[in-house]
Amino acid sequence: MQTFAYLRPSTLAEAVALLEAHAPDARLLAGGTDLIIGLRDGSERPRVVIDVKRVPELCCGIRDDGGTVTIGATTIMADLATSALVRRHFPALAEAAAAVGSAQIRNRATLAGNICNASPAADTAPPLLVYGAVVLAAGQHGARRIPISEFFVNPGVNALARDELVVAIELPVPAVRVGAAHVRRTRRRGHDLASVTLCAGVDETGVTRLAYGSVGPRPVLKIDESGVLADPAASGAARAAVFDKLFAEASPSPRSMRAGPAYRLAMLRVLGSRAVQTAIERLGEERTNG
């Protein structure tokens, strides 16, 4: 591993100042499950590594602010997957977090890291899109709120300015009842990178939100307001027509060795309809429990 300066700020202001001073030669280190691989294989050669795990503003865990759940940037996947709060309000996010890597990876990988890498295959992205998350960013010029749907730009590129970092992710507790499910496609059942990652959320007003990734340059959110997908009695043809529209943007790479484009496109349909079905079932359970 090449050498670099390792800096460990203890306040947000310090972190922002360091980032400002050293960008673009600086990389932020949170869980490190991607960065350290890059440092070792030489694909990442920053002069400065800023470890943000001890910045208190970033690691305040998972907080219920009444109507909003705020997840600190350095919250690890394992905590996300097992958080009672997340499981109650955003079960598909917990599901996605539990699907990331192995137990060892989930003990290091952070939510902010997962989204900041802006991998099209990021598993937490689809549920965050479905639940309408907002990214809280801080920089030299202050804080701002970025809707998650505007956060992913291209593979490896997010909407943050050079001197900005993610402080937390905010999730609005849904005002209506929602059933949601996260599903993914991999080459084996054990931990693997997703060749399709998808989340469906069906609410009691009949709106279906479908977010999916790994089939284009960025994860995307599509909304079916027609009520067709949410209607278990809708005809197969009607549902297929809606899926046609929702998946029209998918453009899986022909160069991937993980799955061919035809398969990925077909799996979008399969996973989409399975996730919607599970989401509808869960919505039913919500009603019963509610």
Partner: peptide, 13 residues
């Protein structure tokens, strides 16, 4: 107390 891959962690962390 948590299991981690020690290859993905800097010693200084």
């Amino acid at each position: 107390g948590r299991a981690v891959d020690s290859c993905l962690m800097l010693a200084v962390e």
